[in-house]
Amino acid sequence: MKPAPFVHHSPRTLDEAVAMLGDVGHDGKVLAGGQSLIPVLNMRLAQPAHLVDINRVAGLDTVTVSDDVVRVGATVRHASLEKNTEAYAVLPLLRQALRNVAHPAIRNRGTTVGSIAHADAAGEMPSIAVLTGAVIEVVGPAGRREVAAADFFEGPLMTVLEADELVEAVRFGRFAEGTRTAFLESARRHGDYALAGVGVAVDVEGQGGDAVVRGARAAYVSVTDVPVVVDLTEAVAGQPFSSAWDGVEDLVQAGIAPEADIHASSEYRRALAAELTRRALTTALSEVAS
């Protein structure tokens, strides 16, 4: 388990990084946190001739909160975003989801943007990107372009990124005032890739006893090829907070297409996704309810 030979490039500016990536093209890979790439190299499942290591590129390690978005740079570690109180205050879903990303040691090293660019269907953060209506900031030899998260993912481990492009940052959209969120997943072991996971954003109008559910949307982990948003509004609108949310079943089942693997069957993942959705709705509303 030693990687095949590669040339390690360590650019200091984004322009340098883009130029190097342009030079090596299909023979190159961007290295950020390395939590997916390095094991793949060690097992020789991929043998790129060049690694463009962006860890020393200036200016990519910042989290910026503005009125509409939380902007996360390409080398921001999961742990750093998870602990960012400003980001949590305006978009709690980030922390709610990040707590489920592997283990602390992996979150200390792995990057949120990297996990989105990697586009693993079992990754938490691609789903959060679509649920928040995120915008992916892409940079390449031809300049910058922006891609909506909904258009970014093409399949498992496949995105619209060209070989000579990298993601500079992701802008997660903030929800409207009154939106309640929760993230739940079930894994075989604590921190493993989930058998199924769900993030929900529930639109609540009013305060205290007068509060009513107006709508809800959910995005899933491990039960869809590419992250999608399932609109649960027709099943939840007007329901009491104490609802068992049984009405969401059909919508969830129509929105997901889980595949079987050695850890769980497709049927079990379906049942799990539906149950997690019901529990996530209850969790999201528990604060309002109390």
Binding site: P39, R188, R189, H190, G191, D192, Y193, I262, H263
Partner: peptide
């Protein structure tokens, strides 16, 4: 160790 599941301390 990704797919052969040895319990962690948490299990």
């Amino acid at each position: 160790f990704m797919d052969f599941l040895i319990p962690y301390a948490s299990e």
